[in-house]
Amino acid sequence: MFGGLVANMTFGFLKVAMLFATVRAAGGTVQGYDVGSMSAYIWVSQGMLGSVNLHGRLDFSERIKNGDVAVDFLRPVNVQMATIATEVGKAVFALIPRGLPSVAIGALLVGMTMPTSPTAYVLGLVSLVIGITVSFSTVYLVAVAGFWLIETRGIQILYMVLSGFFAGLFVPIALFPDWLLALAEATPCPSMMMYPIDILTGRTTGGAAYGLVGVQLAWLAGTLLIGHLLTTAGRRKLEVQGG
């Protein structure tokens, strides 16, 4: 956990250097970001990094590969829901040792603009939990592809490369050109990280904030449904050797 925090800090300060320079070079604001709100974006995103799954790895994919999943199917619980719930639980806990310190250190050492209204925080936290859940419900899709592919490393890496970029991990998606922004919004990735940040930092407020939560819920429902269908189909396809 300490190592993770050091990594968060190092990348955080490098992002501060580049993005602050961009804001200053653009004359103080770039696409509505000033130095204070850019700092808030950077440190909240660094804080979420330990909780939002942007690497695409899931223990469950290993269980599909080695056949342990057969045991999971025997248990009287929904395999998809149980997997996602376990991971979301771990991820929400990680906010305490990794998320809060990142934001606190950023606020103390660099300074940031945070919203004053309590609704931004309440709605922001709701959005944050939905965002974390969307990341795992999407990674679950990568894992269940293993019912057909066995080895899912290829798509896992593909997910890792694209999700961070489209989730706005290194550059906020508001800085994307229109066509790239449209492409990003056609994926569930902004729902994992960018939208919760926009709400938590007060960039998006009022009705628009509720709209973003609505989009997140739609992606959550969509990915859960596809995950359910793939689990059912994969269960029929599953063939475990030996026993």
Partner: peptide, 14 residues
């Protein structure tokens, strides 16, 4: 692309 995106907003950086 991450580098290019910043230069999409400004012409000179550092």
């Amino acid at each position: 692309a991450e580098v290019w995106l910043l230069f999409h907003q400004v012409t000179v950086l550092g």
